[in-house]
Amino acid sequence: MEAKPTEISGSKMFGGYNKRFKHFSPTLGCSMTFHVYFPPLPSPSHKFPVLYWLSGLSCTDENFIIKSGAQRVASSEGIALVAPDTSPSAGFYLNATQEKWKNWQMYDYVVKELPKVLSENFAQLDTSRASISGHSMGGHGALTIYLKNLDKYKSVSAFAPIVNPMNCPWGQKAFTNYLGGNKADWEEYDATCLISKFNDVSATILIDQGEDDKFLHDQLLPHKFEEACKNAKVPLLLRLQPGYDHSYYFIATFIDHHIQHHAQALNMCFKPLHP
Rank of each mutant, 00 (worst) to 15 (best):
residue 177 N to E: 13
residue 31 S to A: 11
residue 66 I to H: 11
residue 260 Q to F: 05
residue 9 S to A: 14
residue 167 N to M: 12
residue 38 F to E: 05
residue 266 L to E: 04
residue 31 S to I: 02
residue 236 L to N: 06
residue 139 G to I: 05
residue 232 A to S: 15
residue 183 K to F: 00
residue 41 L to S: 15
residue 215 F to W: 13
residue 241 Q to R: 15
residue 179 L to F: 03
residue 9 S to I: 11
residue 135 H to Q: 12
residue 136 S to R: 12
residue 45 S to H: 12
residue 18 N to S: 07
residue 125 L to R: 01
residue 119 S to F: 00
residue 181 G to P: 02
residue 65 I to G: 02
residue 26 P to Q: 10
residue 235 P to A: 12
residue 191 A to Y: 01
residue 125 L to S: 00
residue 181 G to L: 06
residue 230 K to G: 06
residue 80 A to P: 07
residue 220 L to I: 11
residue 165 P to H: 03
residue 19 K to A: 14
residue 23 H to A: 11
residue 91 G to K: 14
residue 150 L to Y: 05
residue 207 I to W: 04
residue 43 S to Y: 04
residue 178 Y to T: 06
residue 162 I to Y: 02
residue 248 Y to C: 07
residue 100 K to A: 13
residue 108 D to H: 10
residue 60 T to M: 01
residue 13 M to S: 14
residue 21 F to C: 04
residue 158 A to M: 04
residue 69 G to N: 09
residue 183 K to I: 09
residue 102 K to M: 06
residue 161 P to W: 03
residue 212 D to I: 05
residue 142 A to I: 02
residue 2 E to A: 09
residue 219 Q to H: 14
residue 144 T to S: 14
residue 223 H to I: 04
residue 47 K to P: 09
residue 137 M to W: 00
residue 240 L to G: 11
residue 11 S to W: 07
residue 129 R to V: 06
residue 198 F to K: 07
